[in-house]
Every structure is written in C-alpha cells, then in structure tokens.
Design a protein around this nucleic acid. Structure first.
Lengths: 346, 346
DNA sequence: CTGAAAGCGCTTACAG
DNA sequence: CTGAAAGCGCTTACAG
C-alpha cells in the first residue's frame, strides 16, 4: 500500500529492498545485464507491492528524453481543430501506434504557427507530428525552431528536409478517379476543390486529374475548375446548385473530398438533376459516410491507417536512431466504385 | 540567439541579467509583487532575446503540478479509440478550452481500466477527464487509485463522488423524442439501443422514453425494445431490415444514436418500406450527418460544446481550488425536427 | 525588492 | 553485479 499523502519513489523501494536507488532504477528500466536475477525479482516485487509509478517529469528531466510525442494541428479561433473525419481517423491511429511503442501523445491546437516552437520545446517532446498545416507553413520550420525535436508532417508536399513524412498517393488517386469517369465516356468533367496554390495535396490531385486526360488523349478545358472556399458540405451544396447553370455541359464532377462531393450531389438533386443519370460524382477519402448517403458515393480510398502508422514508425525510428528520414513515404490509394457514377448519357 | 546545442535555462538569463535564478523565475511566473519593474523589464527582454522556453518537466517536478490534463478514453485492441463523431466533438472542445486556460492535453487510450491509475500518476497530471467508460468502471475508481489527481467523468451516471462531471439531459431528450412521435399519433414505437444494464446514458434515455408515454397516458409494450450489440450503422441496418418482420405493427422508431437511426432508415428503405410515410425514425445527437442523409434525420440535439466546456471548467475549478465538485451538471437538449418523422398513417 | 540553499525524483557516467 | 555523487532545470520556504 502506498504511504498516504506521499507518492512512492525509488528511494522508498531502495530502502525496502536494501539496495541503492540506482539499482532500483536499473531494474525499473530493464537494464537486466547490470543487476543479479535475485535482486531483480526482489525489487520488482517490492515495487509492485508499493504500487510504484515512475514520475515521468523526473525521468524526462534527468534523461533529456520524454517519450512524449506532440500532435500539432491548426486550430481556428472558434472552430476547434478537427477538420473532419479524415483527421479523426489519423489521430486515432497515431495514438494507438504511439501507445504500442510506449510513447504518450500530447494533443495541441495551434492558432498561430509561431506557437509551434514553444509547443515543441516546453514539454521536451521527443518528436512531433504536424497534421493539417499548409506547405508554406511547414516550409518555414527551421532547424533552430525545432531544436532537438524530430518533426514530421503528414500530407505535406513541402520540400523541407526536416519534416519528411507520410502522405497518400494523391496524384494517382485523382488519376484513377478521372480515368474512371473517362472510361464511362465522360468528357465534360468538373474539378471541384479548394484553391490549390498553397495546398500541395490538392495540387497533386489536380495534376493527377489532368494526367488521366492526357493518358487517353482527351483535351480538358481549364474553365471546368470549380474552386470552393472550404472543403465543406455547405460549399459543395452551393456548388452543386449552380453547377448546371455555370457549366450546362457538365456530365461529371470530381471533388477533392467526400464531404464536398456529398454536398455537390445534394445540390444537384435539389435542383432536379439526377445522380448518376444526369451527372456522375466522385469523391476522395472513402469516409464511412459514403455508404450512408444516397446514392452511395464512388470515391478514392486512402489507406489512412497505413499512412498514420507509417508516419509514427518513421518518427519513432528517427527519434531512436537520431537520423532524419531522407524522403517522404507515399501510401497506396484505390478507386471504390459505388452508385454515384454511371456511363455518360448525354 | 540560443546557444547552439544547449537550451536556454534560467541560469543563462540570470547571468545575462546579473540577477539570481529565482528572480528570473519570479519574473517568468509573473510574481510581479516580488520584483522591481525595471528588473522585470530587463529580465523579460533578455528572456525573449534568448528565446527562453521553460522546461515543463523541471517545473512540474519542482512545483508538483504539471498543468497537464489527461483525456482518457477506452481503446479497443484494433478499433482505436474514437467511438464516433460525438466524442470527436467533445475532444475538440476540451482541447480548446484547456488551451485557453493554459493547460495541455495528454490523450490516452485505455485498453484495460486498471491502466487508469498508471495513466493518472506517471505524468503527474493535475486532472483527468474520463470519456466513454462504463458507469461500473467509473464506480471502481477509488481515492487510492486517483491519488491527488482530480478526475471527472463525462456522460456518466456513476454515483462516485470523486468523478462528478457533466452530461446531457438524456432523460428529457428521450422524453421529447417520444412525445414528438406520440403527438404525431404513433403508438407502436420501438426503442432501439444497446443493452442499458450497464450504460447509464441509455438507461436514462429509456426512462425518459417511457415517461413520455406515461405523460400522455398511453400504455407502452415492453416487447418493443430492440437491443443492438453496438451503436453502429451496420447494427442499425440489420435492425431496420428485420424490424417489420419482428414487429409488423411498428410505425415509429426511437434510436439512442443518430448513426444507429441512419442504419435503421437504410434497412427499412432497403426492404421497400418508406421513411417517414410507413415508419418514422428519430435519432439522438444531432450529428452533421443528419443533414446529409435522405430523409434528413429528426433527432435530439445535445449541446456537446456546452457539455465539454462545462466539464473542463468544473475540472479546472477543482484543480485550482482543491475542492471536489459536489454534483454532476446536466446540459440542455432539444428536439430537431427534420424529414424522418411524419404523422402516423396506419 | 533580492538571493543562497535545499529539494523535487530521477538518470548518467564513473569507480569499484 | 552494485553504489556514491553529480546533475537535469526548475520552485519553495526562508532570511535578509
């Protein structure tokens, strides 16, 4: 039983076992080679009896390593930080993978990118994962700013060598989606997504989309880009409603996110168009949601778990070996055909 | 500029400013009364120049307080920890509210409830929030297990005085939903939800549901309880498909979660029934998803943000005053009418 | 208003 | 295989 009022320390165990503090430390840290088996057993038993839990702060201070990994995400003032189901799945996987490796996760919303330095240093993080930042923000991260903390960005196309991480094969995903529509006979295909000047992911998807047209030797009309202010259901809805007004010849839409695609579908239906009979729609992400809506959404599936797990492994490798990852790792994507796409009928 | 290779400490600032470490400490911690204005200015300036960031581990070790709050959630082996959009919204709000208060969030999945003790102690957490545990697990938490850590449970009906937290008014929510259906003329209303022997939230919803029938003097047939193994779309779908076989007289369903309700709707539609013409369906939570499905789901809206913010405030109050909250706080709910409910037609 | 000293609980060379 | 000592970077009484 722990002494009431005070927590059990190495000292208590050392006294009870008649050994030095450092021997107890060696046992607790599994430096087996340095202690005799009998001592290990005795110390172990006493530690368990006393309900010993090491103080992470003391450990962290003395060892200059915290086994603490930060997960940093942009946080808008009032909107909070989870920018939708995709990131939720990523966070989920990251937490589990870290826990498996004996690390803890510090979750931190970042309002101003300059807070990153403070966030990285205050808890002596061993490493940090950047999720959801713009490439240009990631670019700005200097060796000075990160100090000894290993940093890795997910879904980033920044060339910053400090942050090489994991991302999906966005180029191929969009190419598959567009090719699917082309194979169904569609030629007037709208590309719907946020402005991609600063978002590498969207830019890659745009390039993959165009590549599919080049692959089959079809000219694509640049005017069929539909830019949305944000990747939201509401923006998709608005886009869907004006789509056949702005571009009456449209027979298909590729949206850079499921949530956007679902809004587009609803907007089209709202004004009497039929999906997929009049217009086919393809999304990106393969959220659970795709199965719940009518028609079920054809989309590009990312291997979110694979991406997150890869990121964590890269980071922990880097933390444990001291070496930086040399290049970003790309995880596979695949097309998932459902009910929102059909052969062109016009 | 920080000395390369070594982080700036109080010592560095003290030397540069020609004062003692503890004076710097006082400045950094805003103990203004104890230092002259000129000294404060000088120390501040030097600290900023040097890019000083306090080491949280050293601070935590010395001060016996960490400004670190744990968020503990059940984690299934392979399924990860986020049990759906509701908890996501809660996590989001909690993180922001903690950050506003100058605290950090440690996110931790719990595989075995006994890990809670270790989780609470290792990082010298100032407090912890329990999200998604069973009442019986919360019941088991002893003063010994929590030690000096303030603990608070969200959505718990455990009577454990150590964990009094915040929850929605589940009773009233279900009562409103059932009353809505009764007002539309429905009498054969199925109650669909997980087994509620051990889940207080579901139990409360069941009681509120029955209260609505009592309110209007209508007898409710106990056989209309449909128990699902888990609150998932798949379980809802299966339930929806067998509903009119098992209970042909059913004209309405109240499900304890939106995701379940949406599955039920799809199951009903799949077998040719119409929603709401043949069967009305009401959910619970008011997820964004309710707006995306067809028909849009009538549901009970929880004030998720309010619940999360209340929880954080209660916890920080308790941490800062040293006093335990005396009772759980209940946040308001309201009925949101959409397209999945209509007057009874049979 | 300011400082010297002790201590928070651990790990890390180093010596035996 | 085991231990004494120093130190990680901070805060906390205490004394002036």
């Amino acid at each position: 039983m722990p002494t009431p009022g005070r927590r059990v320390t190495l000292r208590d165990i050392a006294d009870a076992a008649g050994v030095s503090i450092m021997t107890v430390s060696n046992v607790v840290n599994d430096n087996r080679a340095r202690v005799s088996p009998e001592t290990i057993d005795r110390v172990r038993r006493i530690a368990a009896e006393l309900g010993y839990v090491p103080r992470a702060s003391a450990r962290s201070l003395a060892a200059r390593s915290s086994r603490l990994i930060g997960l940093l995400m942009p946080a808008a003032g009032e909107d909070g930080l989870m920018i939708g189901p995709h990131n939720v799945a990523v966070v989920d996987q990251i937490e589990r993978e870290l826990r498996k490796g004996g690390y803890h996760l510090l979750l931190r919303g970042i309002t101003d990118f300059d807070e990153v330095t403070e966030a990285l240093r205050s808890w002596s993080l061993d490493g940090a994962i950047l999720l959801g930042f713009l490439d240009e923000e990631v670019d700005r991260l200097t060796a000075d700013a990160v100090g000894a903390v290993r940093v890795l960005a997910i879904d980033s196309y920044s060339a910053n060598p400090l942050t090489a991480g994991a991302r999906s094969d966005d180029f191929t995903g969009a190419r598959l989606a567009a090719r699917h529509l082309l194979d169904l006979g569609h030629r007037s295909v709208v590309f719907a997504g946020p402005s991609f000047s600063s978002v590498g992911v969207v830019h890659q998807r745009f390039e993959g989309f165009r590549q599919a047209f080049a692959d089959v030797g079809v000219e694509w009309d640049d005017r069929l880009v539909a830019t949305v202010g944000a990747t939201t259901h509401a923006e998709g809805l608005a886009l869907g409603r004006r789509l056949l007004v702005d571009h009456p010849e449209t027979t298909a839409v590729f949206a850079t996110a499921d949530i956007l695609a679902i809004g587009v579908v609803e907007g089209l239906l709202f004004d009497g168009a039929s999906v997929p009979d009049d217009v086919s729609v393809v999304g990106f992400d393969n959220l659970d949601l795709c199965e719940y809506v009518t028609p079920k959404l054809t989309t590009v599936a990312q291997d979110i778990a694979g991406k997150a797990i890869t990121a964590v492994r890269m980071l922990l490798d880097s933390v444990e070996t001291g070496e930086l990852a040399t290049a970003a790792v790309t995880t596979a994507v695949r097309l998932v055909r459902r009910e929102s796409t059909a052969p062109v009928s016009r």
